[in-house]
């Protein structure tokens, strides 16, 4: 629907029907100033942010490194055991061809 800006009937209708009842907010100014202050305190650079959160970031980084290191070690151990088992089987089959069937499930 298209209405003309100088539509008199619409203007009259709005004047009669559209009423605004604003609610008073006594803390409005304080809230605005608090937000301005918070924005002022936020570091502008990543370095400044990091210095501000150094303890938390350090702890998270240390925990992540420990977990990842332990995970890498466990993964390497599991892979080593699997490959060693294959090498042992290959050797046993070479001296005893029956091993391929009898040796399955060996520890």
């Amino acid at each position: 629907m298209h209405s003309h800006p100088d539509d008199k009937s619409l203007r009259d209708l709005l004047r009669e029907q559209w009423t605004v009842a604003p609610v008073r907010n006594p803390g409005f100014r304080a809230e605005v100033w608090a937000r301005i202050e918070a924005a002022r305190r936020t570091p502008a650079t990543w370095g400044a942010w990091l210095r501000l959160h150094l303890l938390g970031v350090s702890m998270v980084a240390a925990a992540s490194i420990v977990f990842a290191g332990a995970g890498g070690g466990l993964l390497a151990g599991a892979r080593d055991r699997h490959e060693r088992e294959q090498l042992v089987q290959r050797y046993l089959i070479s001296i005893d061809p029956h091993q391929s069937s009898a040796g399955e499930g060996a520890p």
Partner: peptide, 10 residues
């Protein structure tokens, strides 16, 4: 760290 640990533990 995980990669280094994996390589060193193999």
């Amino acid at each position: 760290a995980g990669t280094v640990s994996y390589v060193c533990c193999r």
